[in-house]
């Protein structure tokens, strides 16, 4: 589907939503629910909380369907809203989350990147394909970390290589993936930016 067709369809759905169409609401919900919950999962680790946040957002969308003003794309609007709600939730926690460090704080404070975020449902398929094109040594380390959740030092001792070599292969794997998916990331930008 081209960018224009996608936008057109979404505009039609939003129009029907503003008139109170349950069907349009359900279509939008199905289109975004899973991806938004997984996106929330990158900020908050509890699935129940993430699902709650996204469901409440959709309820708000419904409640305010008549006054809805979406200046950016719907995708960007939803991601921004989910992120704000997640950050709000974390702010209310008494025990600070583990990944509340400088890198995290800074990368979350930036608003402009919601357009560039690629949803799980779209990226994962591409990622699986790209994984098969990695050099075997990099892929092995990457998958040990990813699927078996092994720490670097555990991988190092299992493969009998240095920890530095594990670091090197991990970063090479990610870099290769990024290069393999570079065109795809570019394409995503053209597809979903108005």
């Amino acid at each position: 589907m081209s960018n224009n067709e996608h936008n057109f369809l979404e505009q039609q759905l939003l129009k029907q939503l503003s008139k109170g169409s349950h069907d349009a609401f359900a279509v939008l919900f199905r289109q975004y629910y899973k991806d938004l919950v997984l996106y929330a999962g990158t900020i908050i680790r509890e699935q129940v909380v993430c699902e709650d946040i996204v469901q409440n957002l959709f309820l708000k969308l419904w409640k305010e369907r008549e006054q809805l003003m979406i200046r950016s794309s719907l995708k960007s609007f939803l991601i921004t809203a989910v992120r704000n709600r997640c950050l709000d939730h974390i702010r209310h926690l008494t025990i600070r989350e583990k990944h509340h460090d400088d890198v995290w704080a800074f990368s979350q404070s930036n608003d402009q990147d919601t357009e560039k975020y690629v949803f799980y449902s779209i990226l994962n398929k591409k990622l699986e394909e790209a994984l098969h094109q990695l050099t075997p040594a990099c892929r092995q380390v990457f998958e040990m970390n990813r699927f078996e959740h092994l720490k670097y030092h555990e991988i190092a001792s299992q493969l009998q290589i240095s920890q530095r070599a594990v670091e090197d292969r991990m970063s090479k794997a990610l870099k290769q993936l990024r290069v393999l998916l570079k065109d795809f990331f570019l394409l995503m930008l053209f597809f979903f930016i108005k």
């Binding site: 997984l38 999962g41 990368s107 560039k116 690629v118 990622l127 990813r146 998916l181 990331f185």
Partner: peptide, 20 residues
């Protein structure tokens, strides 16, 4: 950083997508 994180997050989702 964001692009790598996006890739990373997709490769290692916080919970099983099928469990949603």
């Amino acid at each position: 950083f964001n692009q790598l994180k996006n890739l990373w997050d997709t490769g290692t989702p916080a919970f099983q997508p099928d469990a949603i």
